[in-house]
Simulated scan of single mutants.
Amino acid sequence: MNYTYLLINLAVLFFPLVLSFDKKVHFFSKWKFVLPAILLTGAVFLAWDLLFVKLDIWSFNPKYITGINLLGLPIEEILFFLTVPYACIFIYECLNAYFPANGLEKYSLAISNLVLGLCVAILFFGYSKWYTLINFGFLFIVLAYVEYVNKKIRFMYRFYRAYLVSLIPFYIVNGFLTSIPVVLYNSKEILGMRVGTIPFEDHFYLMALLLMNVYLYQFFKSRVAR
């Protein structure tokens, strides 16, 4: 058995879990909102993952996983949708607690419109590639819903700040996963642009994953508040 991917998951979770009892953030008290958000989002992304494996869009290097499978996926990949969202929501809450002032409030809608426009442009040129099509199509739908259909929960100015900070551990973790490599991409199904060894699409995969998690997290919190 090789524990590389498993150890990466545990490393992602370690500090956010230990620091969840920080007196200012009290993240442990928000677990009742975090858990359903992660589970619902994870169900969507696991279905996406299974589809990608069946379509041979990506696969997992057997040298770096334990070989334990669940629902047709390596157990480490399923854990990924628990550990990464937990860490990202933790970052989101820490930033809100320690830095409540946020200069992005005036610009968040403009940023969202820019991202939506980028999704449309990339879909126009990359619609024939499955990862590109599903990734940017899904992000477009979720972002458009959050900005233009959802009227009660406004958080995008805080979301974009958390996303930018989350890119730091993203480059470390995804850098390992794609350079070793643990995850293998079908070059025919991606645009071919990379930042180091990380496919360009992965940046927006992270955005979609984080956005759905944070929206549901805020949704469950708002229901209790009301």
Rank of each mutant, 00 (worst) to 15 (best):
141 I>A: 06
74 P>N: 06
62 P>R: 02
80 F>H: 08
23 K>D: 13
117 G>W: 05
85 P>I: 02
61 N>K: 04
44 V>M: 08
79 L>Q: 07
62 P>C: 04
59 S>W: 01
25 V>C: 05
136 F>V: 04
24 K>Y: 13
45 F>W: 12
88 C>K: 06
88 C>I: 12
94 C>S: 14
102 N>A: 06
55 L>S: 15
137 G>F: 03
30 K>W: 06
114 L>F: 01
147 E>I: 11
52 F>I: 12
37 A>Q: 07
46 L>V: 15
81 F>H: 00
121 A>L: 13
48 W>R: 06
103 G>Q: 00
59 S>P: 05
146 V>D: 02
50 L>Y: 15
36 P>W: 07
20 S>F: 09
106 K>H: 14
20 S>V: 11
58 W>R: 07
19 L>V: 04
92 Y>A: 05
126 G>Q: 00
102 N>E: 02
104 L>F: 09
20 S>N: 04
18 V>Y: 04
67 G>A: 04
69 N>R: 15
132 T>V: 10
50 L>F: 15
147 E>P: 06
136 F>T: 04
82 L>V: 14
20 S>W: 02
49 D>C: 09
36 P>A: 11
30 K>N: 11
93 E>W: 00
140 F>I: 06
105 E>D: 11
83 T>C: 02
101 A>K: 14
104 L>N: 01
121 A>S: 13
76 E>H: 08
121 A>H: 10
73 L>W: 09
67 G>P: 04
35 L>Q: 11
65 I>Y: 00
70 L>V: 13
116 L>Q: 06
103 G>L: 03
60 F>G: 05
106 K>Q: 10
95 L>W: 05
110 A>S: 14
84 V>C: 04
108 S>Y: 09
29 S>R: 14
129 K>N: 01
143 L>Q: 03
25 V>W: 09
35 L>T: 11
144 A>K: 01
147 E>R: 05
36 P>R: 07
139 L>N: 00
54 K>H: 15
56 D>W: 12
80 F>P: 00
64 Y>A: 03
74 P>W: 03
81 F>A: 02
144 A>E: 05
117 G>Y: 07
103 G>I: 08
142 V>F: 00
32 K>Q: 05
31 W>Y: 15
48 W>K: 06
95 L>K: 03
54 K>V: 13
69 N>E: 15
92 Y>E: 01
68 I>H: 12
137 G>S: 01
108 S>A: 15
68 I>M: 01
55 L>Q: 15
146 V>G: 04
92 Y>M: 02
